[in-house]
């Protein structure tokens, strides 16, 4: 399937054009994207560190996960909402960028994992091995998203 026409259409959208033609819009959106990334890091790591037996060790996992969940969702929603206009403004560049495709694949996996397997698993205390595996998968997926995201700028 040839997706290039679709990406050309993305690039020509009103929103994409407005962001591309503005001097300051892209940088400003990018700043919000970075701030949301920081919040995502906190929301993911507080729980994953706990699963590894580190960080807030004396907190029960289900309660901690419940308290953190709104911040996780807030950061993911903000990241997507700021990511879309940036993508639209340079969709054709993204089409030819390998890191962009890695990022999108990993992003789908990371979100799916966070909101299905991990979320369900965190509803009760788990055996240490299971908890550690959850944390490692979660951190690896999100790290992959962040890493490949940064490399869209380089390749």
């Amino acid at each position: 399937m040839d997706l290039l026409p679709l990406f050309q259409w993305f690039e020509a959208t009103r929103l994409g054009t407005v962001v591309r033609e503005s001097l300051w819009l892209f940088p400003v959106i990018e700043c919000v994207h970075l701030l949301a990334l920081s919040l995502l890091g906190g929301a993911v790591l507080v729980v994953d560190l706990r699963l590894l037996g580190l960080g807030l060790r004396s907190q029960p996992v289900p309660e901690l996960a419940r308290k953190i969940q709104p911040w996780l969702t807030l950061s993911v929603v903000t990241l997507i909402a700021t990511g879309i206009p940036m993508f639209l403004s340079e969709a054709i560049k993204c089409y030819y960028s390998p890191p962009f495709w890695y990022k999108m694949g990993l992003l789908v996996l990371a979100i799916a994992f966070a909101y299905t397997v991990r979320r369900a698993a965190l509803e009760q205390e788990r055996a240490p091995l299971m908890a550690k595996m959850l944390a490692v998968v979660s951190m690896s997926l999100w790290f992959g998203v962040g890493f490949s995201g940064r490399w869209i700028a380089f390749y």
Binding site: S38, L40, G42, A43, V44, L45, F147, R150
Partner: peptide, 21 residues
């Protein structure tokens, strides 16, 4: 340069993430 830059950006998740909490 990209490796140093990426380290700098991704460390935000650890550093600022914890500070923000």
């Amino acid at each position: 340069y990209p490796v140093i830059e990426t380290t700098h950006v991704l460390m935000l998740c650890l550093f600022l993430g914890m500070i923000a909490m």
